[in-house]
Design a protein around this nucleic acid. Structure first.
Lengths: 127, 127
DNA sequence: CTGCATCCCACACGATACTG
DNA sequence: CAGTATCGTGTGGGATGCAG
């Protein structure tokens, strides 16, 4: 229980530090809409409207904003077709695909442990 | 392993649906402070003050709030010692530990791809 | 030391209306 | 269809002060 026990691997970019860029990355991963968009696109490219329809409860504004963010971070590519009516396709980049397994793991954990968590909440609230 | 999540036979909680509980779970996982707390506690139990010191930038309010949330969800256990001055220890429960690998994977991805992401951002902003 | 209470405000987000 | 623009508000979260 030595309080000066130091983990030797704490040398690299450290998300515990305030301004470390990895925090920004974690923020993006943590964003609820980003996660859902990545998950949705994991099955293959989608049009804007398909995404809006598939992701229940997302507003137009948030969907666009989320897609812009993901595009800026190089996780999603955007392809606009100059047709009438317009058509815009989104798909994951290689970088985005490298994240899918992790995010899918999160979803699996969430659904898999939902029961335990709800039970814990009920227990806590009943005290 | 396919990241395409298969439909299970029972009612599947679908995070794409608005009111599904798994969204709430995802929200907790996605919370920046929750992730950092879980990561910090992964190495072993910590006192309140240690957490506050270790997690740079977290306010007292948010730390307490985050710990309550994690405790409510059954991810963290809280042990208060009736001493003077008081001492409160936090540690991961089994449920909490089951999440560590996933969250650590997220952190590893974040630090590992930080360079690519920053490059992508620079490229995007320079258009 | 650990935390709850209060005040306060920036900004995240939804709703709505408009456009190429 | 796929956005952009604008506005109103709810609240996340910091700062401060107090208590056990």
């Amino acid at each position: 229980m030595s309080y000066f026990l130091r983990e030797s691997q704490d040398v690299e970019p450290d998300p515990y530090q305030r301004n470390c860029g990895s925090r920004q990355v974690l923020d993006r991963i943590g964003d609820r809409w980003s996660v859902l968009v990545v998950l949705t696109l994991a099955h293959g490219g989608k049009r804007y409207g398909e995404l809006a329809q598939r992701i229940d409860g997302v507003s137009q504004k948030m969907l666009t904003q989320t897609l812009r963010g993901l595009e800026r971070d190089g996780l999603v590519s955007r392809t606009a077709h100059a047709t009438v009516p317009p058509r815009v396709d989104y798909e994951l980049t290689d970088l985005g695909r490298s994240l899918v397994d992790l995010v899918a793991g999160l979803e699996a954990w969430a659904t898999g442990h939902l029961g335990e968590i709800e039970a814990a909440r009920a227990r806590y609230d009943a005290r």
